[in-house]
Structures are given as structure tokens and as C-alpha cells.
Computed example of a mutant assay.
Amino acid sequence: MELVFDGHNDVLLRLWRNRATGGDPVAEFAGGASDGHIDGPRAKVGGLAGGLCAIYIPSTEEFALKEPDENGHYATPLSAPLKREPSLDIALQMASIALHLDRSGAWRLCRSTADIRAAIDANVFAAVMHMEGCEAIDADLTALDVFYAAGLRSLGPVWSRNNIFGHGVPFAYPMSPDSGPGLTDAGFELIRTCNSMGILVDLAHITEKGFWDVAKTSDQPLIASHSNAHALTPVARNLTDRQLDAIKESRGLVGLNYAVTMLRDDARDNAATPLTDMIRHIDYLVDRMGIDCVALGSDFDGATIPADISDAGGNQKLVAALKGAGYADDDLAKICRENWLRVLASAWHE
């Protein structure tokens, strides 16, 4: 079994939502859940050894992709910006869940690559606290210190909506990621502060202008934790060849997003998406950037994924498909975990 360290999941969001209706996050993760994609038992079956676990504040309105028109095209409007105070409350609740899981032994909250490797060796899920969209962080960045102390080691300045730090891309097809402005003045300061603190910066949801703003400001490898190739599936969330070239030059990485809307030719939200669509994106990314710059970023618990994988327990089906496509054992180790551990070590000043 090829163990996987995954670049993005939304299990904390699912656990938080279930707790609001009486669920016990520790029991649900440790003992197994009847919904979603990730829990401890399914992670072990699928060789999911750990990953970046997102604190994500849901939009106040119900989010859904806009229905495609007669040509299969759609353009979902950006979600409205969120207020900071309720966002901070939710972020703290999700951080609390992450800490409770750590204290219970259901997973291990990792702050270094040594922590990750030790957790994997101990057969304990290696969780890294990530923030997807920084609505909970103030412009003065005082809350960032507190979240860092709690274990935050990775963040994306924006989700697909705008905030005080920058602008996000919409969920739209076909559309360029060059869809709006980039970082704000507060966003530039956030990037510089993350660099000095050793917090990884994730570019998965930011506009192309924001991508280049980060590229000219950050001293880290450029990372898009859960994105795919725009040349194959031209949704705004995917990355252009020019962006991929910049990621390669920085020795960063792209984590393959399992979301079917970012894999399919038609970008439809259809779980009947073959594993060959995942392989063609991996092949394209490897051909463009090299094997050292490609990893996995499933978006488990945050998107519709191919039915053949179904949940974390099906991860080895992708590994088997990659092996069948000619990827050697050393290549699989890099794609599945070692590339992530390399860029995390760089961003964390190890």
C-alpha cells in the first residue's frame, strides 16, 4: 500500500456541522461515520496517512453551482463577503475540534514534518491545521498569532469569495482564473508575515492576479493545494500553463483535486467520472512541471469526487491506476506524500 499525505480536505467542516445536530466529533472520526469521505477507519483502509485539514467558514447563503446553460457553460456568482466576528467564532470552534481529536488520540495534530513522519510511523492520522480563506483573521493579524499557537501551519488567503486580504475566483466554466483583482495591502502583509512565521501559503482559490502578487512577494515555493490543469478543464479554479511554469520554477507543487467539476472535459458535477480523467491531469502536470511538483489534494468532504473512489477508503484505486499508467514506485512515493513533505519543510523553515 502506498501511503498518502493529502493536501486538502474539509473533514473539520463536516464534523462541525454534525456536532451542531448532536454529533460527537471524536467518536465520529475515531469510530467511523455514516456520511462524508474521511474518518479514521476509512483512512486506514485507503492508506490516507494524513493531510491538511481545513478550517473553512461556510457562506451565509446556501452555496450551489449555477445550472449549466444549453452549451454546458455556467458562471456561479462569488459568494458574499463574510463578517469577521461570526467567522472567528466558527474558526475557533473548528480549531477546538482539531484539538479535541488530538488530545483523544483520534489523530495527531502536526506542527513539523518530523511530527508528520512520527504520526505515520505510529499509524495515527497526521493532521495539519489549515485555514481556507482568512475571514477569521483581522487586518492587524493578532488572531493569526493565536491560531499559530493552536497549530495552524498553512492558509489560503481567500476562498472563492473576496475578503480584506484579496479576491477569489468564481466557480465558472469556461473561464480564465484572471477574473478580478489580486491581493490588497493587508494581503501583502499577510503573505510577508506567513513567510516570517513559517506558515505555508496556498494559492488554490485566488485570482490569477493574486497568484502573481504572491509570487513576487513570497519566499516560499508556490503551492496550489487542490487545483488541476486549465488546459484540460478550463474552469476558473484551475491553473494556466504560465502559472504551472511559475510553480515549477519555485520548486512548489500542485495537488490534484478530485472534484469532478475540475477533472472532466465538460466540467459537470457528475460522479460518473472515470479515473482516466484523474490520470490525464496528473500526466499533464508531470509533463509540464516534473514529477517533483505534483501531489494529491483530494478535497474530500468538500466536493463531488469520482464514484470509483467514493471516499478515503478508495484512495488506493487511484494509486493502482497511476501504477497501471506507468508510474514507478519512486514516482508514486513522491506524488502520494514525499513532495508534500518537501514543500512543507521549506515553508516551515526546517
Score class of each variant (00 low, 15 high):
256 L>S: 04
212 W>C: 07
246 A>C: 04
216 K>C: 10
255 G>T: 03
213 D>P: 07
241 D>W: 02
243 Q>T: 05
248 K>P: 04
258 Y>C: 12
222 L>G: 10
212 W>F: 15
251 R>Y: 14
260 V>M: 00
248 K>W: 01
241 D>E: 12
212 W>D: 08
236 A>Y: 11
231 A>W: 00
225 S>I: 02
227 S>R: 05
238 N>G: 10
259 A>P: 03
238 N>V: 12
215 A>N: 07
232 L>I: 14
224 A>Y: 01
251 R>E: 15
218 S>C: 10
213 D>L: 13
231 A>R: 01
232 L>W: 13
216 K>G: 13
236 A>M: 14
236 A>S: 15
253 L>S: 00
220 Q>H: 10
239 L>C: 06
253 L>E: 00
229 A>P: 05
221 P>E: 09
218 S>G: 09
211 F>G: 03
230 H>A: 07
258 Y>P: 08
214 V>E: 03
212 W>T: 09
235 V>N: 08
226 H>M: 04
226 H>G: 02
225 S>Y: 01
214 V>P: 02
214 V>M: 06
216 K>M: 11
252 G>H: 05
244 L>S: 00
246 A>L: 01
247 I>G: 01
229 A>E: 06
226 H>Q: 09
215 A>Y: 08
211 F>W: 03
236 A>T: 11
224 A>G: 14
224 A>F: 01
216 K>P: 04
258 Y>L: 15
234 P>D: 13
235 V>G: 13
235 V>S: 14
237 R>Y: 02
230 H>N: 10
252 G>R: 03
257 N>R: 08
237 R>S: 05
238 N>I: 10
227 S>H: 07
222 L>P: 10
238 N>C: 09
232 L>N: 10
215 A>L: 04
239 L>N: 02
224 A>C: 12
256 L>T: 05
218 S>M: 06
250 S>Q: 04
232 L>M: 11
246 A>Y: 00
228 N>V: 07
231 A>C: 06
245 D>P: 03
240 T>M: 07
251 R>A: 15
219 D>P: 01
